[in-house]
Amino acid sequence: MMRAIVQSKSGLTLIGGGPVGRPALKEALSLAPRVVAADGGARRALALGAEPEAVIGDLDSLDARTRAALPPERIHHVAEQDSTDFDKALRHVSAPFCIGVGFWGARMDHGLAAINALARHPDRRCLLLGGREVCFLCPPELELHLRPGSRFSLFPLGPVTGESEGLEWPIDGLDFAPDGRVGTSNRVSAPRVRLRMSAPRMLVLLPSGALREAVRALAPDAAPAAARGE
């Protein structure tokens, strides 16, 4: 069994080396205050005043100045080159959910690689926050309370079918695939949206304002009171 470098009973914020807006980071930290950086994301974290308790990766992007600013015991070298630093960080932490910032929106290849990591590790509840969107891999069953009329997109990462309630265009009876039918630009038609999926291969994309509700839905027992509406 792989050793967890960081174990947490609450959410973790994972910071990558891509652009991270202060409002997005503030929102992520309000829900997941413990910080882990993926390799060069450590420099980004320190620049934003969010000191990571661990830096995980192959360390080829960790500059000398950033390394010197952190205690050596916080820096964890994962030598293999078959995965991205986001994948390495995701695999080496244990938490009920993670929010990733700095992995989505800067470069298309980095964004696709981050999505690939979500697909490879469906047991990890991780949300990627970037720009004006939040995305995550849909679990077998999901219930969200959202504003009617808001955008609700689905994108398959492999062959998958499902059922829905509360969407303007239901997905029941449809076969989805990356090279076939996709479900982008759907809309919420009722205050409650329910999804049931045949396999963990469907990406959900929502406006970034739905982050708190998405955290509540993915990790109801670990979501902070702010996400539960308390």
Rank of each mutant, 00 (worst) to 15 (best):
V188E: 07
M197W: 05
E168G: 13
G183F: 01
V204T: 03
G209K: 05
G209D: 12
P220K: 01
M197V: 14
F152P: 01
A199Y: 02
L154Y: 05
V188W: 08
A223M: 00
G130K: 03
R132C: 07
D175L: 12
E133P: 04
R192F: 00
P148D: 13
P148S: 08
E141K: 11
G166K: 06
D179G: 13
G149M: 07
E168A: 15
C126E: 04
L127P: 04
S164T: 02
A177P: 05
E168H: 14
P207L: 10
S189E: 08
S185I: 08
F176L: 10
C126M: 14
S164M: 02
G131R: 14
H145G: 13
R132M: 11
L218G: 02
G162T: 09
A222P: 01
P159I: 14
P220R: 02
S150N: 10
G209W: 06
P159N: 14
L137A: 10
M202Y: 04
R194Q: 13
S164H: 06
D179H: 15
P191T: 08
R212Q: 14
R181W: 05
D175W: 09
P156C: 03
E168L: 15
L142D: 00
T161P: 02
F152E: 03
E133T: 12
S189M: 06
L211Y: 06
N186M: 02
S185M: 15
E213R: 04
F176S: 04
L157V: 00
A222N: 03
L128C: 06
P140G: 12
G130L: 03
R212N: 08
G180P: 06
P200E: 12
G166I: 09
F136G: 12
P170M: 06
P224H: 10
S198H: 05
A222C: 04
L203E: 12
A190P: 01
V204F: 06
G149T: 05
A225K: 13
I171E: 04
R147A: 15
G173C: 05
R192T: 14
C135Q: 11
V182M: 12
L211N: 11
E213W: 06
G158Y: 03
L206E: 10
V193R: 09
V182H: 10
V193T: 09
A177D: 12
F136Q: 11
G162Q: 04
L218W: 01
V193K: 09
L146D: 06
L129P: 05
L211I: 08
V215C: 07
L206W: 07
A210V: 10
H145E: 15
G173Y: 05
D175I: 05
M197F: 04
V188Q: 08
R201V: 00
G183V: 02
L144Q: 05
E163C: 09
R151E: 15
R194S: 09
A223E: 00
S150T: 14
G180R: 14
G209V: 06
M202H: 03
S208P: 01
G131E: 15
A225I: 08
L137W: 08
V160K: 12
R196N: 02
D172C: 01
P139M: 06
P200G: 11
G131M: 11
R132V: 06
R216M: 02
L211M: 06
A199T: 09
E165K: 13
R151A: 15
A199E: 14
G131L: 12
